[in-house]
C-alpha cells in the first residue's frame, strides 16, 4: 500500500534488501502475481478432472464465462485471440488484488507495468489485423470515402496511438488512486476507516481489470472485422 507516499514498509523493501538487487517494488509484486498464477496453473494441470471441483471449478467458471462473452462479441474468430485476452484479464485482476493485502502494493499502481501491457495490446491487435488482412489492413485507417483518405489516415493514426495511452492512464490512475485513498484512510482511522473501503475497491479493481479486457476485445474486434 505504499503508493508513492513516504511509504509504510512493504514486504518488497525487505526482500530487496535481502537480495540486494535494487529493484522497485512493483517488479516484486508482479513476480508475486506470476508465481501465484503459475502455481495455480501447474497444480491444476496435474489433476484435471472431467467433473471439476474446487479450484478447477473457479477457473472454469471464470474462463468459460469470459470465453462466452468474447465469442458473443467478436464471433467465432474470438476463440483464436481469447488466450491473450483471458491472460491479460486474470493477470491484471491478480495484480490489482495483491494491492489490497496489507504490506503489499498493486503492481498496476505503477505506470510502467500498465504501459508495458498496453503496448503489448497495441502491437498484438495490429499484428492480428495485418496477419488477417495483409496489406489491406490499411483500409481500416482510410475511412469510407476515397477523397478523404489522406485526412482519415492521419486522424486514425492519432486515435490508434491514443489507445495505449488511454489504456495505460486509466488503469494507472484508478489503481494508484485507490492505493492512495487506502493509505490516507489508514492514517486517519486505522482499521475502521479502511475496512468499508475494501468492499468498494474490490469492486473497483475488478471493474478496472474488466474494462482493460473489454477494450482489448473491442480493439481486436475492430482489427478482425471488415473495414467499414
Amino acid at each position: 500500500m505504499s503508493a508513492g507516499l513516504p511509504h509504510p514498509l512493504t514486504y518488497s523493501v525487505i526482500i530487496d534488501e535481502k537480495l540486494g538487487l535494487g529493484l522497485p517494488p512493483h517488479v516484486y509484486y508482479m513476480w508475486l502475481a506470476m508465481i501465484i498464477l503459475f502455481t495455480c496453473a501447474l497444480m491444476l494441470r496435474g489433476r484435471l478432472q472431467l467433473v471439476p471441483g474446487g479450484l478447477q471449478n473457479v477457473f472454469e467458471t471464470v474462463i468459460g464465462g469470459l470465453e462466452d462473452f468474447t465469442v458473443a462479441n467478436i464471433g467465432e474468430e474470438g476463440r483464436k485471440v481469447f488466450p491473450f485476452l483471458c491472460s491479460i484479464f486474470i493477470f491484471i485482476l491478480v495484480m490489482n488484488y495483491i494491492g489490497l493485502i496489507p504490506g503489499c502494493d498493486a503492481a498496476t499502481a505503477n505506470v510502467n507495468t500498465n504501459a508495458a501491457m498496453a503496448i503489448c495490446v497495441f502491437l498484438y491487435y495490429n499484428y492480428i489485423g495485418i496477419k488477417k488482412w495483409g496489406f489491406g489492413y490499411i483500409k481500416h485507417f482510410m475511412g469510407p470515402m476515397a477523397a478523404l483518405a489522406p485526412l482519415m489516415l492521419v486522424l486514425e493514426t492519432v486515435s490508434h496511438l491514443a489507445r495505449p495511452v488511454s489504456l495505460t492512464l486509466r488503469l494507472f490512475g484508478n489503481i494508484r488512486g485507490e492505493e492512495i485513498v487506502l493509505v490516507l484512510l489508514f492514517v486517519l482511522a486505522p482499521v475502521l476507516g479502511t475496512l468499508p473501503m475494501y468492499f468498494l475497491f474490490i469492486l473497483g479493481k475488478t471493474i478496472q481489470a474488466f474494462i482493460f479486457f473489454m477494450l482489448t476485445m473491442i480493439y481486436l474486434k475492430g482489427s478482425l472485422e471488415h473495414a467499414h
Binding site: 492519432v158 486515435s159 496511438l161 491514443a162 489507445r163 495511452v165 488511454s166 492512464l169 486509466r170 471493474i207 478496472q208 474494462i211 477494450l215
Partner: peptide, 15 residues
Amino acid sequence: SGTIGLQLVSATFIG
C-alpha cells in the same frame, strides 16, 4: 463512462 473522457484527452495529447 470509464472510457470516453480519457480517449478524448489522450487523443488530444497524442496529436
